[in-house]
Amino acid sequence: MIYLYGAGGHAKVVIEILERQKKEIAGLLDVNTEIKSLLGYPVSQFIPANESATDFKMIICIGKNEIRKKRAGEIKVNYGQAIHPSANLSPRASIGEGTVIMAAVTVNCNAVVGRHVILNTNCTIDHDCIIEDYAHISPNAALAGKTMVGEGAHVGIGACVIQDIKIGKWATIGAGAVIIDDVPDYAVVVGNPGKIIKYNY
């Protein structure tokens, strides 16, 4: 049994993944008291008092990496995973708790994916990549072998990263960017080839 925290657009995708996995969704939690249901599942502000924290798992369905990290630090429960059946995962890859892997994602041999990561539709994580906690790899982004993506970093839609690149923590890679050099912590990089335009301070 799984509860989802957050009742926005990201939660819709996670719901359908869990349905495809035939996992039981107990309901959703959201601070917005005006949201009563999502895709037919009840939304409330609290887990029912009769539910023990050992009886269920949770997935945080919030797209913003920094908020997802904050909530994961606040909510002390067991976390599940949502992995779309069409994802192609190497049996030698490692996937952390709370992570969501969407349709047509590929994760290749010896890749390590951390906790509460989002691997979005059709992205590619090649061999020996390391994706640290709370990162988000957007749809159609491609990471070549031995790429490292730091905590909370966001790789934008359609971005391409060559092999052996390190993307720093809480960095942002713009949509369609081509990354051929290491990216420092907190840097915002856009273009082809990618150039730093500012920092996320």
Rank of each mutant, 00 (worst) to 15 (best):
G6M: 07
G194I: 12
K23A: 15
L119I: 06
H10N: 12
I130E: 10
E51H: 08
A144Y: 03
R20D: 15
H127D: 07
A135N: 04
A177N: 08
K169I: 01
T172C: 03
I196M: 12
R92L: 13
V117D: 10
N50D: 05
K12F: 11
K12N: 14
V190G: 09
C160G: 12
K23D: 14
I2E: 11
G96F: 09
V14S: 10
I75C: 00
E97A: 15
D182G: 02
P48I: 03
C129H: 06
D182V: 04
H84A: 15
V188W: 01
N120S: 11
A175S: 12
I173D: 08
G27I: 03
A177R: 00
L18C: 14
H84K: 08
G152F: 05
Y3L: 02
H127K: 02
P48Q: 06
H154M: 10
V183P: 03
N110Y: 15
K169M: 06
I162S: 01
A93P: 13
L4F: 11
T33Y: 12
L89I: 15
I131L: 14
V117C: 09
A177P: 08
Y5W: 09
A104C: 15
T147S: 01
I101H: 12
E97N: 14
G114C: 10
L29P: 00
I62Y: 05
D181F: 05
N120T: 07
I17S: 08
Y5L: 09
A142N: 09
P42N: 04
G156A: 13
E74A: 05
G152S: 08
M148D: 08
H136Q: 14
G8W: 03
A111D: 12
S44A: 11
P184D: 13
L18I: 14
T147V: 15
A111W: 11
K12D: 13
T106A: 13
A53K: 07
V149Y: 02
N50V: 02
H136D: 15
S44T: 11
V105G: 07
G114D: 13
I162Q: 01
Y134C: 02
I25Q: 02
S138W: 02
G191K: 04
N32C: 01
E51M: 08
E19F: 11
S86Y: 06
G152H: 06
N192Q: 13
N120W: 05
K23H: 14
H116D: 09
T172D: 05
L4H: 07
I179L: 01
D126L: 06
V112I: 15
F46E: 05
G194Y: 07
K146G: 00
I173H: 04
M148I: 15
G168H: 03
M1H: 14
I173C: 07
F46R: 02
G8Y: 03
Y199S: 08
L4T: 06
L29G: 00
D126V: 06
N140W: 05
I59N: 03
T54V: 11
Y186L: 14
G150Q: 03
Q45A: 01
N78K: 05
T106E: 06
K23F: 08
T121C: 08
V105I: 12
C123N: 03
A72D: 09
A144P: 03
N65P: 01
N108P: 07
F56N: 06
I165E: 03
K169Y: 02
I125E: 01
A93K: 10
T99M: 07
T33N: 12
I165S: 04
D182K: 01
N108Q: 13
N88V: 05
D185M: 04
E51P: 00
E19N: 14
R92C: 08
Q81G: 06
N108V: 05
